[in-house]
């Protein structure tokens, strides 16, 4: 049996760090050791930041974004055009679109996609919340920005059906050649979608 070299507190820290995406047991040990070495400069501030975030983080009751206030910063931003709502699968997608800074609009986070294999149905996503927002009458466009996967597009078509009774514009992201993409290396499905969605030059 392997002898223990640390106390249970450090073992627990390593076990919890190993659950973070991107970290395995080995990298969790490295991270824990780094935190221990930088106890005052890093571990203390990190612990208090996590404690504060734990107390204050909540899910926005309007759009589903994660923030420290409800409604969130995006929903209360007066400079955003809240009549356009970008529908995304996850908060990570919202952050990615914000990094692109291509649209100054409101958001709606679904919380996933319809996935029969994982048992995720419409009731497990915040589709009803989106329909409620549209029913209030302040929305003129819904941009469905879900992943270009069959599950993502199934969800997109389902949402389109649910919103078919409202007189709003429903759009979705284009599918095609990514910036910097070389045609020779693209898969056939992406190339076919790009050709079908060709635009006038």
């Amino acid at each position: 049996m392997q002898k223990r070299v640390t106390g249970p507190e450090i073992e627990r820290l390593i076990q919890l760090l190993a659950r973070v995406p991107g970290l395995g047991p080995r990298s969790a040990r490295r991270a824990a050791l780094h935190l221990i070495k930088k106890k005052d400069q890093l571990m203390g501030p990190l612990a208090s930041a996590m404690n504060e975030a734990f107390d204050k983080v909540r899910i926005c009751s309007t759009c589903g974004n994660a923030d420290t206030s409800d409604p969130c910063t995006v929903c209360t931003d007066p400079t955003r055009d809240q009549s356009v709502i970008i529908v995304v699968e996850d908060v990570a997608d919202l952050w990615a679109l914000e990094r692109a800074a291509a649209m100054n609009a409101g958001y709606h986070v679904l919380g996933g996609t319809l996935s029969p294999l994982d048992g995720v149905g419409p009731d497990d996503l915040s589709i009803a919340g989106l329909v409620d927002r549209v029913a209030r009458g302040d929305v003129r466009e819904i941009l469905i920005a879900v992943n270009a996967t069959v599950e993502g597009q199934t969800t997109a078509h389902y949402i389109t059906e649910q919103l078919s009774g409202f007189e709003i514009k429903i759009t979705r992201l284009a599918h095609g050649v990514p910036v910097g993409g070389e045609l020779d290396y693209l898969d056939e499905g992406t190339l076919a979608a790009a050709i079908r969605a060709r635009t006038a030059f």
């Binding site: 270009a148 996967t149 069959v150 597009q153 078509h157 389109t160 059906e161 599918h175 898969d187 056939e188 499905g189 992406t190 076919a192 979608a193 079908r196």
Partner: peptide, 11 residues
Amino acid sequence: DARAGRLMESA
């Protein structure tokens, strides 16, 4: 056979 791209185009 890459059908998924074509299938995604329609409901």
